[in-house]
Structures are given as structure tokens and as C-alpha cells.
């Protein structure tokens, strides 16, 4: 009996340690050059989507975004334009909404369907209900972009961060970070800028 208790206690301590560790390292996730594990998430059209579905793609632009963050809304049109410009060149957009629906009812699948229809999304808009994918990537905010390049069937991180350098005024963008990075990859080079942080809304994590 006593032994069982000791083992149980030890298991609890280990579990607590793992849990705390998971919380602490939430912001770590993938770095530049890391290989990204594929995911399978539900799209606004009801189908499941994986990166593997994009067989002819040279890479993908994964963007954690949402319906509710004003900064994400500012970038919505530019995300549409990214997909329009680069999907045909082999770099389609995959948008993922990781916000907890209890905390952000405006980010429910129903609301996502409405928004994507209204704005004419040309790319998948997936719900990360368990938030496991956002955590695996190390996404912390919306919008948060990861540019992945397909090498030998594997998706590798080439750029993380801001879409461009002027959220306020899309007409006065000086540096188009994501576009520049894709252009570099398309010409067989490594992007010169690999990480640029930007302001965004904290991902609404589920209460632990």
C-alpha cells in the first residue's frame, strides 16, 4: 500500500513537472530550419486538411490568425493577396485559427465559415480546437506567420513572423518580409531575413 502511494506520488510529481514544462516552453516551438510535423485540421468546408494534401506545392505559408483580433483584420486583405499571388507559384496559404471558443465566441467554426464566405477566402481556414498545432509551432499571437519550404517531401521552416513592416498602411509598406522570403526560395536562395517580430493579439489559450 505504502509503495503504491509512493509510486503514485512520484507519478504525480513527474506529471506536474511535465505540465509546467509544457506551459513554460509554450513559446518555443519550431525555429528556423526545423522540420514541421504534418497536421490534420478541420476546414471551413467541413473537410480535413493536411499539408500533405498540397502535393504540387513547393511550400506553404502557415498563418495563425482569427476573426476577432484587430491586427489580424488589418492583415486579412494582405493574406488574401498573398494567396492570390503565390498559390499558383507553389506557395499556398493555410490559415489556422487557434483561439479558444469559450473565451472568443467570435472565433467559432460557424463564425469562421461566415467570415471566410463573406471575404471570399481562397485558402483553407482551419480550426485548431485542441490548440496542439499552435503549441507545436510555438505561435503566440495572431497573426503569426510561418513560411515553410518543401525539401525532399519535408516541410522546413524558412521564415517566422511579420507579413510586412507596415501594419497601419498597406499602401506604404517598405519591406514585404514574407514575399521577399518566398521570392528568395523560388530563385533557389535562402531568405536573407529569417525572423521579424510584430505586434499581435495573444492567442486565447484554454484555461489550464
Amino acid at each position: 500500500m505504502k509503495k503504491t502511494f509512493v509510486i503514485l506520488f512520484a507519478a504525480l510529481v513527474v506529471a506536474a513537472g511535465l505540465f509546467m514544462n509544457a506551459r513554460l516552453t509554450m513559446g518555443d516551438g519550431y525555429g528556423i530550419g526545423d522540420t514541421v510535423a504534418d497536421f490534420k485540421l478541420k476546414n471551413v468546408d467541413g473537410k480535413m486538411v493536411s499539408m500533405a494534401d498540397f502535393k504540387d506545392a513547393k511550400g506553404v505559408i502557415v498563418i495563425f490568425t482569427c476573426n476577432t483580433c484587430p491586427f489580424a483584420k488589418i492583415y486579412e486583405q494582405r493574406i488574401l493577396e498573398l494567396d492570390k499571388k503565390y498559390a499558383s507559384k507553389g506557395f499556398p496559404v493555410i490559415a489556422i485559427n487557434p483561439n479558444d471558443v469559450d473565451r472568443m465566441p467570435g472565433d467559432s467554426m460557424d463564425e469562421m465559415i461566415k467570415r471566410s464566405n463573406k471575404k471570399g477566402y481562397t485558402f483553407p481556414y482551419l480550426r485548431d480546437d485542441t490548440q496542439e498545432i499552435a503549441q507545436a509551432f510555438g505561435a503566440t499571437k495572431t497573426p503569426h506567420t510561418y513560411l515553410l519550404n518543401k525539401v525532399g517531401g519535408k516541410f522546413k521552416v524558412e521564415y517566422i513572423g511579420a507579413i510586412d513592416d507596415n501594419p497601419n498602411d498597406s499602401g506604404n509598406v517598405d519591406k514585404t518580409y514574407v514575399e521577399d522570403a518566398i521570392d528568395a526560395l523560388l530563385s533557389g536562395e535562402s531568405p536573407s531575413v529569417k525572423e521579424k517580430r510584430a505586434i499581435g493579439c495573444t492567442i486565447k489559450w484554454r484555461d489550464a
Binding site: K141, A162, D165, I199, C201
Partner: peptide, 20 residues
């Protein structure tokens, strides 16, 4: 200030850019 990346890193290396 519009060069977010520059100042975010100077406030804290831990800051990814999310607010608050």
C-alpha cells in the same frame, strides 16, 4: 514607431510581440 521588430527585442528578448 513602425519598426516593431527593432523595439520589441529591446524591451525584452522574451517578448514575441503579443499584447498585453
Amino acid at each position: 514607431e513602425s519598426d516593431y521588430d527593432a523595439y520589441i527585442g529591446k524591451v525584452s528578448k522574451e517578448w514575441t510581440g503579443a499584447i498585453p
